[in-house]
């Protein structure tokens, strides 16, 4: 931004004209310092991604080899019931977890922001689940949702004999059982992010809205939330990447069961690559995952950055 602003003033234009041959060497130390990171990004992220995509068109088994078979792996992938179930689960988990994380996270943050007593205590309690790994979270919720030891048996022992709540053993709703655990783990973190955003809002804005007699909820929806756009973007990126890579939670809670009802794409990739010793099939699946991320990311990036240039 600073450079762009400079460029607008006539003296800066002149200076740049005289120094143009050296532009590459401007800020030399900064550029040298960033070389390792740039190299890492190119080799690790771009390089390995390209390598993976190339090998997804081969018939590699346990070891990668370059015998191309065209789209065979992709055809097989989209004929596989397990993959289709995985995609469907990811969609349900993704949409629900995105909405619920935002709603719960923001609501909790807004409540805490009302200057309540014992805020630190509540904040700690809500954030605590985030300190647990997905594996621990998954095991804890596996027990809580276990019909023999968990909620179901407790309620039944209270006297409500016909009470049934065993999402992890019911293929139709098992993904919601996983969703519960995911939300429990993640919403505290989103709450803290939101709370930080809310604290960044100038106190004067609240005073102004109070003077104008705008109701509190309306101030939140119409004034505060639009002002918190950067926080929302950060939260969105964190939640979305968490959704795409969900794996350990499923492994700990259900290992994909009952049957294949709670399979997710990341699990398919891992198992095809290492258990079935079919690298190319795993690569094809991971390429599809990358593609789905790009489909979401590219329009958003276009709106976000393309818009700024025009403005």
């Amino acid at each position: 931004m600073a450079i762009a602003d400079d460029a607008q003033s006539p003296s800066a234009v002149q200076r740049e004209r005289t120094q143009r041959p050296n532009r590459l060497f401007k800020n030399m130390t900064a550029k040298i310092a960033s070389i390792p990171m740039v190299a890492t990004a190119l080799v690790i992220f771009v390089g390995c991604t390209v390598w993976t995509i190339v090998h997804s068109f081969t018939n590699s088994r346990l070891l990668p080899r370059l015998e191309f078979v065209g789209f065979e792996q992709y055809e097989r992938l989209w004929e596989t019931r397990r993959w289709l179930v995985s995609i469907e689960n990811l969609a349900i988990y993704g949409v629900c977890s995105l909405i619920l994380s935002f709603v719960i996270g923001f609501t909790l943050a807004a409540l805490l922001d009302r200057k309540i007593r014992g805020e630190a205590v509540f904040r700690t309690i809500f954030l605590y689940p985030f300190a647990l790994s997905f594996i621990v979270t998954g095991l804890v919720w596996q027990w809580i949702l276990n019909p023999q030891f968990g909620i179901q048996s407790v309620v039944q022992r209270w006297g409500w004999e016909s009470f049934a709540f065993d999402p992890l053993n019911n293929a139709d709703i098992v993904i919601y059982g996983i969703l519960i655990a995911g939300i429990w783990q993640g919403s505290g973190f989103i709450m803290v992010l939101m709370l930080a955003g809310l604290r960044g809002i100038d106190e004067d804005i609240w005073k102004a809205s109070r003077v104008d007699g705008i109701p509190v909820w309306k101030t939140y929806v119409v004034v505060i939330i639009p002002m918190m756009r950067p926080v929302f973007i950060t939260a969105l990126v964190i939640i979305t990447s968490g959704i795409i890579k969900v794996y350990d939670l499923v492994v700990a809670q259900t290992s994909g069961g009952p049957g294949i009802a709670s399979e997710v794409p990341a699990k398919y990739v891992i198992e095809k690559m290492f258990q079935s010793q079919n690298l190319a099939q795993g690569f094809a699946a991971s390429t599809m995952m990358l593609l789905s991320v790009l489909i979401v990311l590219i329009p958003w990036a276009y709106l976000e950055f393309g818009g700024k240039k025009r403005g």
Binding site: T80, R81, R82, G257
Partner: peptide, 17 residues
């Protein structure tokens, strides 16, 4: 292992659904 894996996927679904 690839074929066994596919059969396992099929069987685990079949036995549970």
């Amino acid at each position: 292992p690839d074929t066994s894996g596919q059969i396992e996927d099929l069987m685990v679904e079949f036995w549970n659904d």
